[in-house]
Write a protein that binds this DNA or RNA. Structure first.
Lengths: 215, 215, 215, 215
DNA sequence: CATGAATGAGCTTTCATTCAT
DNA sequence: AATGAATGAAAGCTCATTCAT
């Protein structure tokens, strides 16, 4: 593969070097996994020597944490940017989902770091990702709640149910992201549409008071 | 923690020891992850020496694979046993979901091995889990399709859409399992109910021809 | 390959069992080398369980020593049997060489144990083989000396020269044995003839007082 | 024993360290054998840590191969340097033998690696040594052939016989090397002289058409 | 007589991490 | 600002050897 950017040995401002290292780390962590990725490989891919990586990023754990933070922030930012707040709740949800599918498709290594790697390695990392996911779930919960409120069709859903729905929706989106990007060949908008059809309709039914019960 | 079962050093028939080892391995792999789990720790937890683990299970990879197989088979069996085929499709789906939530709640380490650990480690393992998940998705796809057929309300869904819905549903269930077991304190039947309300209603709406579109 | 002889588990007199074990050990040591040969493999090839090997032969070292002793004795016996003492010295030498080539060709594993394996592993073994080789060198020295005496052509060779010649002759025979058995396809008698042509003639010249000198 | 050279822990250029490691490895492999030599011991003798040995020489196998190559090349070079091509064939042979005895006496561990250790361990190593030995046999064959040709005394020897003689001669030299260096206290020139007396005279007789035959 | 069950000890190898320059 | 040189610590795996039956 060779260095991501910049000629080896060139003096470069710290910020640039750091970005190169993070790029290399995300790629390596995403593809190899946390434990299998070696600092050696990351340094090589970044085009610098190992001690420099340590000088800038302290340790493998810190480096991994920095990757999680950067990729997590980028994902949340992308979703938030997609779901413009002036839109109606359903449009926001759709746009947020589309942004989510688009971003994960365009940053597969970053998504792998967040979704596959970070969650399988001890507390420091899992917690960070869990926090970010909680943020998204809260955001979705808000949208669903707002929608329910807008369509004031009487039946209020209690908070726990709302969160449960949001959890389900986020999980469905994660699952679809994997399916769409790896297996099937589905565009982000198609995926968002499929999910909205499914979820928004169900939500509508719920709010009309319809329920499924095992009788 | 101490040994899972049996006094250390006691002579035991091979089958028993093997079960103890698998128990210890599932617990360790589930909590530490594949790479961080050491054979030493697994052996200790099983109350045996390392060489015995190798004698019976060959290698760390083989041991991990055996865990995946055992836990995967158990999960699939639990779901299949829950969803009795003589029931209507919706009841089957509900019962399958309830069984899924129950089983994952009762075997958190096994579920962690399957859902978090196995998918992050190279082809041999990821493939095995992917195959099992595909089996469940196919099962769910069948149920949804059958339901759609039973309620012959005209609008047929094409195959790809059906699979997409099943993917979303399975993802939602996985997400809810984590939420219900770790964060909230929700019973399996509650979780299954929440998901059915959401999904079955949405499905019903879809089959009546209702669609959401960004217009 | 399967057990050398006898059905597994059958009760057999100790001597027979021991022979089977030694057969298996010679084969395994000869082909794998001392360190790479595992007691497991030897026991399996002998068709018995490991503890029985230990019961009869104490340890890997003892087992190896027993192999060396048995194969060494067999080789020396074969050579001595070939060189019948009533013959003239040259005929004895020729017959001894032929017997040596024949025996090594027919017992390649035993020869490998003696010639390749035993000499590369610490004192206990190397010494044993060295002793046997010294015996053969002494025997050859005697034959050469006798021949020199018989052909009383004046020039006596001093003892050290005699031993040196015997050393050279034995080394030449060892080398030819490898060459004849592994590389070329030469019969034992041909090999013995080649060596006699070379050595006996040289010896004859020496005894006529001819010498080579760098001048 | 202590480190071969250089104070422990000192920073040194790679080439120097590598030489130290090879020195230590040759010594250890020569004395202990391939399997019994531990990387730990080699590293200690070289005055470095184990990881450094792996960093520079990759693996135990590679290290052993490097030893074989270095010692083998040195031996062949010494013999070739001894046998100056402008000399007559007999003088060349004598000088080559003397160089051989000298070199093996001065590098006993290297000689042990080549003659005892390398030949007992699997294909990669045995083949390398076999190739080198074949080179020497070919060289000797050439010398004998040239000598036979120079002393055009009618009787030509066929190719196979020549090679057989060379094999015998090389084997005799190997045997004498062990005898001279370990047991007796014989100088290289004495050993070369003994062997020449024996071999060259025998060769001369052969070329005069004399043969030994059993009758 | 014979063995299934079990282990202590040691080996090669890898890797995050740090000096000294 | 940057690196070549070096290591401590740990992990996977193997094997000769021994009990308990």
């Amino acid at each position: 593969m060779g260095p991501v950017k910049g000629a080896k040995g060139k003096r470069m401002p710290r910020a640039v070097r750091e970005r190169q290292m993070l790029d290399a780390a995300v790629r390596t962590f995403g593809q190899r996994g946390y434990q299998s990725a070696s600092m050696e490989e990351i340094a090589e891919l970044a085009g610098v020597s190992k001690p420099l990586v340590y000088l800038y990023l302290n340790s493998k754990e810190d480096l991994f944490a920095a990757c999680i933070r950067r990729e997590g922030d980028a994902l949340v930012a992308a979703v938030r940017a997609g779901a413009q707040p002036e839109l109606a709740a359903d449009r926001q949800l759709w746009a947020g989902l589309a942004a989510f599918f688009t971003h994960t498709a365009e940053h597969p290594d970053g998504w792998a770091v967040l979704h596959r790697q970070a969650r399988t390695h001890g507390e420091p990392f899992a917690a960070e990702v869990a926090a970010m996911r909680a943020e998204i779930v809260a955001f979705v919960t808000g949208l669903i709640g707002a929608a329910a409120h807008e369509s004031h069709q009487g039946q209020e859903l209690d908070a726990k149910d709302l969160v449960g729905l949001a959890q389900a929706l986020v999980g469905a989106a994660e699952s679809l992201a994997g399916w769409a990007n790896e297996t099937a060949d589905i565009s982000a908008k198609e995926a968002a549409g499929t999910l909205m059809n499914f979820a928004w309709m169900g939500l509508g039914a719920l709010m009309k008071g319809e329920r499924w019960s095992p009788r």
